[in-house]
Design a protein around this nucleic acid. Structure first.
Lengths: 148, 148
DNA sequence: GTCTTTGCAAATCATTTGCATGGAA
DNA sequence: TTCCATGCAAATGATTTGCAAAGAC
């Protein structure tokens, strides 16, 4: 998918960053994943293509890309490990299964009016929010359903 | 405030935990704080009363109390450090100033209906959610207000 | 007295940093 | 050629664990 790659190339250059194979691969990996990933997970995925890849490169790249708003540090913390995802173009939230830990995005967000009302009552200038919803996904519900 | 202490005493016993001075002190410290605290912060506060207190006791106690739902691990992560707070009796969320990092609780929560609708569209059994709202508090807005 | 909790020290895990080399512009 | 980016190894910082002593019931 070289179109996608060219978009990343442009975005990197726009932000004064050099285009490297590692950065392109990291962006592609994050983009292909449907859930946020830890540095370690990214490392394992990229290592297939980069025999000499270093974990610290992953950390540094994530840090750089977060600073340039190309990647977002997720609210989620998988037991002390930071998780990362592409900065979503559209505002959305994550729905997390508490059993299998699968994460799916949900588009609908009801918080605009809520933010307005908080701004009014507290005097804060609201800049945004983070929301996660927890539950049990249909598959896990079936697996653990008590017999009747 | 021995009334409060007796409530903690009961709660610990109910859950099959022994009542120790460290646990009571930790609960009191968390309860007195108006913002979530890190293990380190708790350690520094308790050390005043316990010369020989160990950081690992803090971690272990927090872990135990989280398991028993007496303490909650906050969504917030102050740069990699976990934060803890008393499990709120009433459902509420945190409003966080992005400048001074002050955290204030907000009671009002509009997500009940939202959870219902997600449950309907996704088939998940929703168990809860975490929400943080970010903004700039009135004081910080004044401090940084550009002159006109 | 028994079993849990604590303190201390050492271990572990995620993340960061220093420095020399390699690579993009 | 000029820096920025990378790899490697070592350092750091938060959290966890093993073990023996102290404390709660």
């Amino acid at each position: 998918m070289p179109e996608q790659e060219n978009r990343y190339r442009e975005k990197l250059l726009e932000r004064g960053l050099k285009v490297t194979r590692q950065r392109l691969a990291l962006l592609a990996a994050l983009n292909q994943s449907d859930t946020p990933l830890t540095a370690e997970e990214l490392f394992m995925r990229l290592r297939k293509d980069f025999a000499t890849l270093s974990l610290s490169t992953i950390y540094r790249t994530l840090d750089t890309l977060c600073g340039k708003q190309m990647v977002a540090r997720s609210v989620l913390m998988d037991g002390g490990r930071a998780m990362f995802e592409m900065t979503p173009e559209v505002h959305c939230h994550n729905l997390i299964c508490t059993v299998c830990h699968r994460i799916v995005p949900i588009q609908d967000c009801p918080l605009g009016a809520y933010e307005d009302s908080i701004a009014r009552t507290t005097g804060y200038k609201i800049s945004g929010h983070k929301l996660e919803v927890y539950g049990i996904c249909p598959q896990c519900r079936n697996n653990f359903k008590p017999r009747e």
